[in-house]
Computed example of a mutant assay.
Amino acid sequence: MASILYVCVRPEQGAADAEHQSFRRALGVPALDRWDLLERPLDASTAEQYDGIVVGGSPFNVTVEERGEVQRRVENSLEQVAQDAVDGRLAGMFTCYSIGVVTRMLGGTVGTAVPESTRATSIRITTAGADDPLFGPSAPQMSVLTAHKEGSIEPPPGAVLLATNDDCPVQAYRVGDRLYATQFHPEVTPQDFVDRMTYYRTTGYFAPHEYDLTAARVLAASVTGTDLLRRFAEVVSTR
């Protein structure tokens, strides 16, 4: 079985704990080591002890003009680990906020023109994605959960676009065969997402007075995004 490390970048302890368990369940592993980047940097020698890493979401945004010391430290560590994945030293799945960090690192552009509200949405698997071991089995489309304020309209240089939709053109890409990045959340079930919403009622992902309506819509959705992480664990274990 592959050894995988969950890298946490959420300041909210309850949301971080729940995300950790969501990743563990979606990966299909009995235990999942955790590293909290807000508490300490992740050095390459530690990361490379694992076959792969998965990076969760965060209320941080890479497009803000003033990034605090903690956010800068977090992003420096994420860039180092992402480079390890680009160089083939480990496999990485970077989700939500961390796709922005990776995109910027690779020379791409992240902006605020293509946000998506808290909801389930359908994404289309590209031709390249149909041949990918993670995304191919879900072609031609899959249902996923989104909530983000920033994104990209095209993948960064050197990346292969794997999934897209009309609202946010870059939903997922791959660099080489070891680094994956998704704008959506592949780890959560609808109930997970609603539980997480309680921590972010007033942070701009949805209108606070529409919490009940938004939660009901999420709970009514059927999503297939968690299949990606199970496949990620399987692929990592064979390489």
Rank of each mutant, 00 (worst) to 15 (best):
A221K: 01
C96F: 08
Q21M: 05
Y211N: 02
L229W: 07
L134Y: 10
T146E: 14
V9T: 09
V7I: 10
S77V: 10
P208K: 05
T189R: 01
G136P: 14
L134I: 05
L228V: 03
Q13T: 03
G88K: 04
F206L: 00
M142V: 11
V29I: 09
P155E: 08
E39P: 09
V62N: 08
Q171W: 12
T226K: 05
T146H: 08
L161T: 02
H20S: 01
A207C: 07
S117V: 07
A2R: 04
Y211A: 00
M142W: 13
T164C: 14
F193G: 00
E39F: 14
V175P: 00
H209F: 15
S152R: 01
L229E: 06
H209L: 13
V7K: 02
R239Q: 10
F206K: 00
T109C: 13
A159E: 05
I153E: 15
P59K: 04
G92F: 08
G57V: 03
L5D: 01
L213G: 15
S222Y: 13
S122W: 14
A172F: 11
E150K: 05
D167M: 04
Y6W: 13
R230L: 09
I4L: 12
R201S: 00
P137K: 10
E116I: 01
T112L: 11
A31M: 10
T127G: 11
T182S: 05
P208N: 06
G68I: 03
V188K: 10
T46L: 13
E79L: 12
A172Y: 13
C168K: 00
A15H: 03
E75W: 12
H209G: 09
D33E: 14
V54M: 06
K149L: 11
P208I: 07
P157H: 08
P190K: 06
F94H: 12
V110K: 01
R119F: 02
H20V: 04
D192R: 04
M197P: 02
G100Y: 05
Q183V: 01
L42H: 06
F184P: 04
S77W: 14
A216E: 13
V236L: 14
A221D: 02
R230V: 06
D84V: 12
Q71S: 11
T226G: 01
A130Q: 09
V54F: 08
T46C: 12
G158H: 09
D33P: 12
I53V: 15
D51Q: 10
V54L: 09
P190R: 02
L27A: 02
Q21C: 03
R178K: 09
K149T: 05
M105E: 04
T182H: 04
E39K: 12
V218K: 08
L145Y: 07
G158P: 07
V70M: 10
E48K: 15
L37I: 08
T103D: 06
S237E: 15
P30Q: 11
V74R: 02
M93V: 07
A163I: 10
G111W: 10
T103A: 01
A147Y: 06
S22Q: 09
V64W: 14
Y180L: 09
R231Q: 00
P133N: 07
E69T: 15
A139Q: 03
Y205A: 02
R239M: 06
L161D: 02
T164L: 13
A220F: 13
V170A: 04
V218E: 11
